[in-house]
């Protein structure tokens, strides 16, 4: 473990922020790009995960364990969110026979 902890000493915090911003932007692109509801959902998971990684990096940077506890809560929330979201997707599929988000335009004005 010593060699592992020494490794990180040379990576600047900047690069963690950059990595997480790139992955967050890829998640946003995924939401805008795809019409399959499940893949939109997966992009949201990608965004959540990038934020988790950044929280952990900041937690290590400041030497404060609260950040990692927040990540734990975010994971619990993500699990709940996925359960409800996938149930909604299954219900939509049962009613409209597709998971294309363009079919769901009833609320459009």
């Amino acid at each position: 473990m010593e060699s592992l902890t020494n490794t990180i000493k040379s990576v600047p915090l900047n690069h963690y922020i950059l990595l997480c911003s790139i992955i967050f932007s890829i998640g946003v692109m995924g939401v805008l790009l795809r019409r399959n509801a499940i893949i939109i959902f997966m992009s949201i998971e990608l965004m959540l995960n990038s934020v988790n990684l950044l929280l952990t990096a900041f937690s290590v940077y400041h030497g404060d364990a609260s950040g990692q506890v927040f990540v734990f809560f975010v994971m619990a929330l993500a699990a709940a969110e996925v359960a409800v979201g996938l149930a909604i997707i299954v219900m939509i599929y049962r009613n409209t026979n597709s998971v294309d988000t363009n079919v769901l335009n009833r609320l459009k004005w």
């Binding site: 010593e2 000493k9 915090l13 990692q68």
Partner: peptide, 18 residues
């Protein structure tokens, strides 16, 4: 990020943190 400019390396002060 460019505006903030935090370029300090991420150092693990307490190995038992996580």
């Amino acid at each position: 990020l460019k505006q903030v400019g935090v370029a300090d390396p991420v150092v693990l002060k307490d190995p038992g943190l996580g």
